[in-house]
């Protein structure tokens, strides 16, 4: 089941499948540790369509919905063996 990160509800977790688009945004996400296989958790959303607070690798990140829409996630953790710790 493929969804974008922006479609997750607070408290939901999912694994990164791929990142759409390229350029600076993609590089930035890479630097922050958003690479395929990593588990993300949406902690909370700012009201009125504001940014999302996301937890990954034990730290917190704020991202706008527009940027979250570019991250395709899947519910199942099919890469779980390889990435157990990366997706802490």
């Amino acid at each position: 089941m493929e969804r974008s990160l922006g479609e997750l509800k607070p408290g939901e977790r999912a694994c990164v499948e791929r990142i759409n688009g390229g350029g600076a945004l993609r590089r930035r996400m890479m630097d922050m540790g958003i690479v395929p296989g990593v588990e993300l958790e949406v902690v909370r959303c700012a009201p009125m369509g504001g940014p999302l607070q996301i937890r990954l690798k034990g730290y917190y990140l704020a991202m706008r919905r527009g940027e979250c829409a570019k991250i395709v996630v899947s519910g199942e953790q099919h890469k779980a063996i390889e990435h157990t710790l990366a997706s802490r």
């Binding site: 930035r28 940014p51 607070q53 704020a62």
Partner: peptide, 12 residues
């Protein structure tokens, strides 16, 4: 040229 992304760390 390129709009900056809002991908910001929320430090502890």
């Amino acid at each position: 040229k390129e709009r900056s992304a809002f991908v910001m760390e929320l430090p502890l």
